[in-house]
Design a protein around this nucleic acid. Structure first.
Lengths: 359, 359
DNA sequence: GGCGGGAACGTAAACGTTTTCATGGCTGCT
DNA sequence: AGCAGCCATGAAAACGTTTACGTTCCCGCC
């Protein structure tokens, strides 16, 4: 028989740490002279029980430091109060901001967060997805490896799912995308507006959805606002090295463009290094812009003009989408709004004449 | 009665997506003409069952897409196969690297990862900790708000716990610390060795454990290798602004030091801005060093010398520590080894004469 | 041929909740 | 006074597993 002798106040030192086998709802019930059903009612809804008994039960529970067994509750309730996040091997900054947004929203909704990151193959992702099965009520997926077929094969169809930055078209899935297209379009237009018409674009990985969208935005703006010049697109893969090589390539061209728009900041930084090495000045000799607004963008010299994505908000609204899906399961699967982004003008695009001051 | 009509191969299009109520171990048992006990044995240990029946059961399970109900298993097994990570509101880069390391190791051990980040008050952390109770087999804590009392009040004492970068001394808890002291000491010595004896130190937040250790390392090296000059310590709080102000303060001193060592990179960057604004050249006029090796460090001009912490490995070994603790519960609580770090010499300390090339 | 022993397998209990249903007491109305 | 109905409460089923314990069967040995 267990006996409970918790002092109502802080432990009296010596007597602390008795063995205390995990205490269950039964212990609380016995101690409060009620049935387990009443304890459950008092601790959950609160209804169906007298205010007086309810208080007594809560007191006992507190005194015994009772914590309901999560698994037992999951088993009967068929809810885990957990959502899973399947994330790729991401750039540090983006990753942490995204998680922060997701986590913030999750805690606000009383949900737990089960993460699985840095899987880099499709099989890997499938395994991770399977492993999450049954441990989560909903799932958040951001991965280059998912497409319709993958999802259909690895997801139980009744599991609320939200895709982040995914090319998946299927109406069955909720998708939240960053509006890469509009962002790239806006930045290209800005460059044109500030007098740069010969703009080269350093592309991202071929199979990357974001990268494609950005390139499309660039092409669209060029077609509309600088129809006289043909768009110039150089290959890249989002790495700094690729940007560096692209930069060298640009300098080697017989007709040098007067601006370069890189599909992400890392490549812009690499490109800037190439220019500096060759003694080409940014923005005087050539303007430069990136995409993402990673922190580094502010600290390179000169500070990089770029397109900012509110990553925290992206994560937050993704989680909120799953949350609403599982709050009203008769999901109308409202088509996800794309997520806006804004251009932030610093010095590399030559528009701002602000001094290199402490931003 | 449920009937199962799964085609052995890929769905034949039209017939896909029948309602398929979640299938349990009983369904598998019935379909394979065995008892649930045998199914359990076949799928888990594999022993206590004929090779033949075992195979048949596995086939059926696969065909039915059976996935054991995690909660039911947790309930009876009293293991969740999940470890929780309680993390503070961290700097982006550090955070993501740490998570990456933890996640990698977790997956290698077949463990899930329940994260809870960005809690910024002690109560907040306590709530998060309580919420994790019963959902995890072990826990990883990195937070400024934890001390012995906090842990004792909020942690069941039988829960394997590992503290990351914590000042907690209690032998009961496993602690893994970065060797901030040695790192700071080494960097200070390096500055002295390269001819800078008048070194000012920009401190971190007063209550921050890492910051204190770093300051101690600086003082120790000064005392040992530059005993003639008194250490100069300026207040800071790890923010760029603090570094900027400290930089101005340093320039205003009547006896200007010939080197500055900031307790982290962000402050070093801020300091550098102050110097640049004042027309003071780094490293010609004054040397500069930071701590952390955040990515920005490589991209500022000139690239920042700093002390690198292998964050991924830190996360990995922290998780591995919990993993071993729950593999052999008779934990001897081996005192955690502190985690080494290395100084990385770039240009701001004036030692390297390498050109500003593409690193 | 009897018997001991081990392996394969089934039965049922147990894990800690929530929830449905039944029961009893009380209130208020006729 | 009787009855309807509500409300607090308790008993028990259910959730899907694992596992201790029996039972059966077969094999080999005396």
């Amino acid at each position: 028989m267990k006996t409970f002798t918790f002092p109502p106040l802080g432990d009296s030192g010596a007597s602390a740490k008795l063995v205390m086998a995990t205490i269950t709802i039964k212990d609380v019930a016995r101690e409060a002279n009620v049935s387990v059903a009443s304890v459950s009612r008092a601790l959950n809804g609160g209804s169906g029980v007298t205010a007086e008994t309810g208080q007594r039960i809560r007191d006992v529970a507190l005194r015994l430091r009772y914590i309901p067994h999560a698994a037992a509750r999951m088993l009967i309730t068929r809810r885990t109060n957990t959502i899973g996040a399947l994330l790729p091997d991401l750039y540090g900054e983006f990753f942490s901001e995204l998680i922060r947004g997701i986590d913030l929203a999750a805690r606000a909704h009383g949900l737990h967060l089960l993460v699985s990151s840095s899987h880099d193959s499709s099989d890997d992702a499938a395994a991770a997805l399977r492993a999450m099965q049954g441990r989560v009520d909903g799932i958040l997926i951001m991965s280059a490896h998912v497409d319709d077929a993958f999802l259909r094969a690895n997801l139980p169809e009744d599991l609320p799912t939200v895709l982040i930055n995914s090319p998946v078209k299927d109406e069955a899935y909720r998708v939240i995308n960053v509006d890469n297209y509009a962002g790239a379009r806006a930045m290209t237009k800005h460059l044109i507006d500030t007098g740069h018409t010969d703009i080269a674009f350093i592309a991202g990985p071929k199979n990357n959805f974001d990268a494609q969208q950005r390139e499309n935005g660039y092409r669209a703006a060029m077609a509309k606002y600088a129809s006289k010049v043909a768009p110039v697109v150089l290959a890249g893969d989002f790495t700094e090295e690729a940007g560096f090589r692209a930069g060298q390539e640009i300098l080697a061209r017989k007709k040098r463009p007067n601006a370069v728009f890189a599909a992400n900041d890392m490549m812009a930084v690499g490109c800037m290094h190439a220019f500096r090495e060759a003694g080409v000045c940014v923005p005087q000799d050539i303007a430069l812009a990136g995409f993402d607004d990673i922190p580094v963008a502010r600290y390179v010299a000169p500070p990089l003009s770029t397109v900012r994505v509110r990553i925290v908000d992206l994560g937050r609204s993704a989680l909120e989408a799953v949350a609403t899906m599982l709050e009203n399961p008769d999901h109308p699967t409202t088509a996800g709004p794309t997520f806006g982004c804004e251009i932030v003008v610093r010095e590399t695009c030559g528009a701002s004449s602000a001094p290199a001051s402490h931003e």
